[in-house]
Design a protein around this nucleic acid. Structure first.
Lengths: 359, 359
DNA sequence: ATGAAAGCGCTAACAC
DNA sequence: GTGTTAGCGCTTTCAT
């Protein structure tokens, strides 16, 4: 165990008050005493007990991150950004690691609250069934910031506007001359899927292009195209997004009429789709353009480097943490602050635009 | 803020002692009282304050995970496994998020110790410069388990035996008839690179095959022009492993004499190498066999599905956490327990073995 | 079978 | 300027 203030005080022959004043840099201490004590402290390698401090201050300088599989691969960059931003502000981070079921979710939140986290950031799969838990946090008056808009919840929110991102992605394809465009999505009713589809439809409608239901696939774990609500698999999220993309693209490619371009849920979806196209002998981008989302490292090194949307993950992390801490510090007016951030189009080869230029 | 025992006691007209006995399930309480209180507790939704408990018990049920960039993509599966295993045992997890410099590393450990984590698990990059920090933990008598062997440190250790894994990988290539085999590694002096090279040499030597220095590449960041400085990503480990693999393979392919197979540091390295081969017009696996390590999701969906070694990440996580907690509980004799686990060969297309069969 | 009281390491209000 | 003291919410020993 580490040294305690009690022990130090005894050893140096000063009082707890004086020691504390020195520790917080109060000027009400004789300079000589301060310098001596500071020197000793250094030598003794004293590190204050954050648990005791937390108990006393009712403030632990710890942030809780929640959401099913918060550390899932797809979120790794946001998690990193959150971590870095928290550290920069002197905060630590704890994850509530749940499988996504409302029960486990609630349990995670309970554990984190028991550990007196100062605030929560929600970085989930955007599933409606998790909303009640978040409402509980709000009701308890614990600062809470979400990384995606949560319907029915008036909460602080820093998010990437996927709707307009998907509109932009789709518009890019349209500008390239595509008129037959498909969409490959996660089957869940998550905000992420919903907003992606909205953005896609925005662009198609604006361009007066037909939206073909056959080409809008919500991929389910069994590779079927219908939403399978009764599939009670708790670990659906263990199936890789590559696999989903592969299944979904296979489905579209098997149709009698094919689109000439597919907008994908993520880079992983697109890479899975790319593989399906390869196996089916469909050339990308010549016969089929593909675009992803996220701009993961893998996008750049795919067989056909992916055109995709780059998310400002660092900004999301910094802003969210900053917002949350300001809220914790009571620096913000009650009104929730909602801060949409924009993704940026990254053009590579998979959309065929470089091909077009060559011609 | 949540309810405290004090408030509950007042409200229900019992004493703190009785409440506590009920909470820990002691039989020394009148059944009627217990049932009544339990019911009320449920209604009140009481959740014990883990911070206060931790202070009193000198035990927080929290594990600290350390190592530079602990959550770096490459470690995500182990991190997940650790998390899951910890939760299953009733423990939470905190990360020490450092950039890898000894100073930041030490700072992370200090913060985690201040938060009274019950034990540490080291999941680093295997760099020698981090060893002193780990020694400090040991000296402080805090339980510590490492996920890779640390030279000069007698510590509990659960690890995947990369040396024999790389021997097996290399042997597989040799069995396929390759005699000219290259090796693509991280330039750091990490245990990971060192052991991979050792395993490679084991197999080559056993087969009496020449080890060509020209074909053993330790890729450095300056192996090419661009570093991701644009996103404020100043640290070397922000460069993707795909990029390293790409650079490294490009280097090998530029040699006058080429190997017919390359053993890569990871799946990401292999995918980067695959891309380099594609751009150079080198056919994989016909002209060049490539094998990876990790069996990431991406390995299966690479342009040429990767032959690779699958790591028992779940087992690593479970064993390590189990070992650490047993150590915390004082259930183990002083002697460090060292538990090597074996990776498993997964044969796909990139090694050319399926091709060979077809012939 | 139940209650009272001490104390984990820290902070802050109050006294000297 | 410096020292003393009362808790933060919990567990545990000792009385009753």
């Amino acid at each position: 165990m580490s040294l305690t203030q009690h022990e130090i005080v005894n050893q140096l022959g000063i009082s707890r008050g004086t020691l504390h004043r020195i520790l917080i840099g109060s000027p009400l201490v004789k300079a000589a005493t301060r310098d001596r004590v500071l020197g000793e402290l250094e030598k003794l390698n004293y590190v204050p007990n954050a648990i005791a401090r937390g108990l006393k201050m009712r403030r632990t300088n710890t942030l809780g991150i929640i959401g099913p599989a918060a550390i899932k691969m797809a979120n790794i960059d946001k998690v990193n950004a959150l971590h870095l931003a928290s550290r920069a502000r002197g905060y630590s981070v704890m994850f509530g690691y749940s499988n996504g079921s409302p029960e486990e979710d609630a349990q995670c939140i309970r554990e984190l609250r028991a550990r007196m986290v100062d605030g929560f950031v929600a970085l989930g799969r955007g599933l409606p069934e998790n909303i009640p838990q978040y409402q509980d946090i709000q009701k308890a008056g614990i600062p809470f910031v979400s990384l995606y808009p949560i319907p029915g919840l008036q909460a602080d929110c820093v998010y990437v506007d996927t709707r307009s991102a998907y509109a932009e992605l789709t518009k890019h394809l349209i500008k390239l001359g595509h008129t037959k465009i498909g969409l490959l999505l996660d089957a869940s009713a998550s905000q992420f899927s919903v907003n992606r589809e909205l953005g896609f439809r925005d662009a198609m409608t604006a361009a007066k292009l037909p939206i073909v239901d056959d080409w809008i696939i919500h991929v389910t774990p069994d590779g079927a195209s219908e939403i399978n609500a009764e599939n009670g698999e708790t670990h659906i999220w263990h199936i890789s997004d590559y696999q989903y993309g592969f299944w979904g693209a296979s489905l579209i490619l098997a149709k009698r009429q094919r689109p000439t371009a597919i907008v994908c849920f993520s880079d992983e979806f697109a890479i899975g789709a790319l593989r399906a196209a390869d196996l089916a002998g469909v050339r990308v981008p010549e016969d089929l353009a593909l675009v992803g989302y996220d701009d993961k490292d893998s996008a750049k090194f795919a067989r056909v480097p992916l055109t995709t949307m780059h998310q400002p993950d660092n900004e999301v992390g910094t802003e969210a943490v900053s917002l949350l801490i300001d809220r914790i510090d009571g620096k913000l007016p009650p009104k929730p602050v909602v801060r949409p951030l924009q993704a940026k189009l990254v053009v590579r080869d998979s959309c065929g635009s470089r091909l077009a230029k060559k011609r």
